[in-house]
Design a protein around this nucleic acid. Structure first.
Lengths: 338, 338
DNA sequence: TCCGAGTGTTGAAGCGTTTCGACAACATTA
DNA sequence: TAATGTTGTCGAAACGCTTCAACACTCGGA
């Protein structure tokens, strides 16, 4: 292994000088700087991460805590992950993967051994058992998701209530008066997952506000079950002319199910999805974006800020954005206003 | 931070003694051992990972290299990942996430800075640009997948050729004489991905061997495209009575497409999938298992073996296992033998 | 001419481990 | 009894980096 001493010798300077060239914490003459840089390049020098961590008590690594629970939509999850990793790298940080099975135990271990400087915790539930632990541990952490109490934490999330409401408003503006809601798999609700419940709440409240009749059902992630849920919604509310879908896995089967039940999208039933934009684009669905990349990026930026001692707000909510597409381009409004 | 010196002082021994208790590299009297253990517990001591890495030149971290290319089925990928992480933890190792965008550059960096002791590389292509790099770098590595030349490497993979063949044999034994093959999205073949091509090859060779007519087509991951592919297969070979599907994302739409074209599973068309067992179980499909967990586990075990200086075979192929389920339970055989 | 400020560089101490050689204390053998 | 192992413990020297205090210069200004 080539060390800083080797570089120093090769460049004819002291090790500390090389260090200062690297970190930029002191001014170095341009001549020396280029000389040192050249030696580094020539020798293929890379600072030893462990040694650096020891000297600075900073590992430049953050833990990414991924529970991998059933019911989470992995493609979406991976977008969070990629965005977070990319952002981390932009700040010269690496990412250590901590999965569910390691549990609280695992958090303690990596924090205690100074392996990581902070935590990025994904898929946070309303009352998450990791939250008290994170609060008590000194290490900075950022949560993607929103536990019941955010005091003393840093959380990032989409404003799911607003998202649910936004869907209703859009449909109401188009003249729809009977709207259905197709939710996540029922386990997700049983588990007390904040985002699912909040979307529902926002949806329901907005419907009340606008004087619109609404019905909601969960949907599992297979065709039969989606079909059953849609059928059930239609039976409950035969006049239903619009459907809000908050379930990525079910999306692929919604149009098919409606068709199987004799309804066409968008002419008989308009559909609004809450999902990543790409997915909606591909299926030509009007949608409220689930800005996975943006969330992952923001979360990591906040974590970096905290690592550098900057204070952060306990809760950052991203406003929902709706993109209109073919699935709500029905002629209902014209009919209604005709 | 509580250090080994603190523990030593608290227990009334030398730091080195504490270290020996921890590593077990020298015999320590039971009394001292319990005394030290008690102090460790009481003070909540965790050895500093960086310091340890510096002293031992072993980070006890492996890099997990995840390209996250389009077309890979993420649920399957995540099973590899979870299995690999779990296995790593069983050997007291942690896992650093390295994603595609970091490229070869990233591999060099983490290896050079002694951040990781080895690499677990996933989703390896036939001629992967990371392979020469891995060969030249000193660090041990294990690949999941199978590049064109495996000399000097350690690779783990399912025997996809055998898997393709196994499907044909099963169907042939049931009396089918006209078999279709529904493959991965076409990008996967364009990208020269080994597993897709090998499955096809195994399928084709077995069909020839058994004197069976076969047709193959790729399928994209949306309903319309699956329907189109299936229709095209049926048009090419109207007598087709069986279908082998090697495309997790398409699986959900296969039965629907066949039904839409007037064929029922399994009575008109038998279906065999190559996919993780759980997925097949859920859809009641006869399948050749894609043993993601087993592959991830094996790969990590091999990596650990290499890290400990044990030699490893360049190629470990897992034999395919077929589980019969409802989707091939047609009465064809009886008709055939009747 | 001398002083103070600023600039560029250095030597050495320290970060928290592991590990090697040394050394007591005790047990075993000749 | 002396020589020889064995066992358990210790002190000190690494490991490769950062950073602080100190030092040698140069440059203006008084």
């Amino acid at each position: 292994m080539v060390t800083i001493a080797d570089v120093a010798r090769h460049a004819g300077v002291a090790p500390s000088t090389v260090s200062y060239v690297l970190t930029g914490k002191r001014s170095i003459s341009p001549q020396t700087r280029t000389k040192v840089r050249e030696s580094i390049r020539l020798l293929g020098y890379h600072p030893h991460a462990g040694a650096r961590a020891l000297a600075t008590s900073r590992a430049n690594v953050v833990a990414l805590v991924l529970p991998l629970r059933p019911g989470v939509h992995l493609p979406v999850l991976m977008r969070f992950v990629t965005a977070a990793v990319t952002t981390a790298r932009r700040h010269d940080m690496d990412v250590l993967l901590v999965t569910a099975d390691q549990g609280a135990q695992g958090l303690r271990r990596v924090a205690g051994s100074a392996q990581v400087d902070g935590f990025l915790v994904m898929d946070v539930e309303l009352d998450d058992d990791r939250v008290p632990l994170l609060r008590q541990m000194g290490q900075p952490s950022v949560l993607i998701g929103r536990p019941a109490a955010v005091k003393g934490l840093t959380c990032v999330d989409l404003d799911f209530e607003a998202a649910g409401a936004r869907c209703v408003d859009h449909l109401a503006d188009l003249g729809h008066r009977y709207i259905g809601f197709l939710g996540a798999p029922s386990v997700v609700y049983q588990r007390n997952t904040g985002y699912a419940q909040r979307t529902m709440a926002g949806f329901g409240a907005a419907a009340m506000r606008r004087g619109i009749a609404s019905t909601a059902l969960p949907a599992e992630d297979d065709y039969e079950s989606v079909l059953a849920s849609v059928r059930s919604l239609l039976r409950t509310q035969p006049a239903m002319t619009a459907l809000v879908v908050h379930n990525e896995a079910a999306l692929g089967w919604v149009a098919g199910s409606l068709r199987a039940l004799g309804r066409r999208v968008p002419d008989d039933v308009a559909v609004v999805a809450i999902c990543p934009d790409e997915l909606a684009e591909q299926m030509q669905l009007t949608s409220v974006q689930l800005p996975a990349e943006e969330l992952g990026r923001q979360a990591m930026e906040l974590l970096v800020a905290r690592l550098n001692g900057h204070p952060t707000a306990p809760l950052t909510l991203l406003p929902p954005k709706l993109s209109g597409r073919a699935s709500t381009a029905s002629r209902l409004r014209h009919r209604g206003t005709a």
